[in-house]
Design a protein around this nucleic acid. Structure first.
Lengths: 189, 189
DNA sequence: CCAGTGATGGGACTTGGTCTCATCGACCCT
DNA sequence: AGGGTCGATGAGACCAAGTCCCATCACTGG
């Protein structure tokens, strides 16, 4: 039998989410997280650069976005291209069985400034990835920045709705509708 | 003669900026900052909630934005309202004699992830203030969110140009022009 | 059976941040 | 002038985050 149970990072992330829900972020010690996962502080920091990052593990989102933008139909406008990327996100990441986890995670993030700060930084990174991917398609810089910004806003709106939705409505359609509304609001501004 | 020199927060902020430029953010200790200002660690944390915040002291920006939005002409559209607010910022905050300080400060912020993270959080707060002020004028929620988001983007663009500009071009005109470009890019997306 | 490799444990150490108590200076009041 | 109050500072103990180094264990291949 193995001394080491598999998937240490996953166990740490799960333990952290549990403890943050139970006692709050700042009342939870890294040592407590590690102990609940059957590990130690050393191992925690070997897998995550800091305490906050334990909630931002699955870092494939940027890749999905870039891929989605790159594989959009050649004639598509910038915002439609972004919509394509959001769809890809909905198919791979924001799927029905991740919804409960996403809701729990987001509730913790919303409750603690320190975590929302990290979330903001991540969001900037993702927006930058989208801008880069759009420019790679030949979209002018400023247009790409506007489209990415509106895309991020769309994502935010759709995500909130997806989290709150009692029915099992998918992320993709919600994003499509949110994008249409953002577009209309932009035209009205 | 006074035991206490005046303006402890200002001296701490100045000392911090100096030291961050000299040795970098993470190589600078709060104790070092305090000592250079002729104070102690205790006093530092009495004036600033944490080490990062020492670079985000002048917290009147949100007020200026809200005021600018509130005092825009009644008939103005959302984006023009935001332009009004950016103008107010340029008149009061981003004035010619603050340009050098702003450049130094921004250089430090750009160089350290920890500080850009805090900057991102501040930006979110300001965007939220703008949204609230716009809604208070009767702007529909979604329109307000889009306008505020584009306003923040405009700000970012204009600020970068203002920082880099060799000539003494003012922030206001730069923001006006940036907004026009953002508008055009939005229409093209 | 043994050596090498990679993940973990353990503990010392620095720093950010909190808290409490003592101290000092200015101002007020008589 | 003298005493008392109040706000700002100093001093130091204390906890938790994060870094670093080295020992230890399990697995693998010879």
């Amino acid at each position: 039998m193995a001394r080491w149970q598999p998937d240490a990072p996953g166990r740490l992330a799960a333990a952290a989410l549990d403890l943050f829900e139970e006692n709050g972020y700042e009342n939870t010690t890294v040592i407590e997280i590690a102990e609940r996962a059957g590990l130690t502080k050393s191992t925690f920091f070997r897998h995550f650069p800091d305490k906050r990052e334990v909630l931002f593990g699955g870092g494939t989102v940027a890749g999905l976005l870039v891929e989605g933008i790159a594989s959009a139909p050649p004639g598509a406008g910038p915002l439609d291209t972004v919509a394509e990327a959001l769809d890809a996100l909905g198919r791979t990441f924001f799927t029905a069985d991740h919804r409960d986890f996403s809701r729990r995670r987001q509730a913790v993030l919303n409750a603690h400034t320190e975590l929302r700060e990290r979330e903001a930084l991540k969001r900037i990174g993702l927006t930058a990835s989208m801008i880069e991917a759009l420019r790679h398609r030949g979209v002018p810089d400023l247009t790409a920045r506007v489209a990415a910004q509106l895309g991020t806003l769309t994502w935010e709106i759709a995500f909130d709705q997806w989290i709150d939705a009692g029915n099992g409505e998918g992320f993709g359609p919600l994003a499509r509708q949110a994008l249409a509304e953002v577009r209309a609001a932009g035209a009205a501004g």
